[in-house]
């Protein structure tokens, strides 16, 4: 993966962590993990998991982002932490995240 893309992934993770921490500092790590889990493609996840194996990768991330990715890299599947990641079940109609 090019350095451009990797730096973008790190930036994204930090940005997500920063905003979710502002929304709810207590749930920041889980919420970040939940967000990345629901919206990032496997390649992106694999790359960032690989990245935190190294010192450079770890220091490029904020504490919340790092904790969240470590949590996911450990195989966790966090439950929805915000309603934005609560999608409809098979027969439900209430939710929509139409853009």
């Amino acid at each position: 993966m090019s350095s451009g893309t990797l730096s973008r992934l790190r930036f994204s993770a930090n940005q997500i962590a920063q905003n979710l921490a502002a929304m709810n500092p207590d749930k920041a790590v889980l919420a970040t993990a939940d967000h990345i889990n629901k919206f990032w493609d496997p390649r992106m996840k694999a790359r960032i998991f690989e990245d935190i194996q190294g010192e450079e990768g770890r220091s490029a991330l904020s504490p919340v982002a790092l904790a969240a990715i470590e949590y996911l890299a450990g195989g966790a599947e966090p439950k929805s932490q915000t309603r934005a990641t609560e999608f409809n079940s098979v027969n439900e109609i209430g939710h929509s995240d139409a853009g």
Binding site: A84, D97, A98
Partner: peptide, 8 residues
């Protein structure tokens, strides 16, 4: 979705 549960 975060606030109302739906964006429709």
């Amino acid at each position: 979705s975060t606030t109302f549960g739906t964006s429709a």
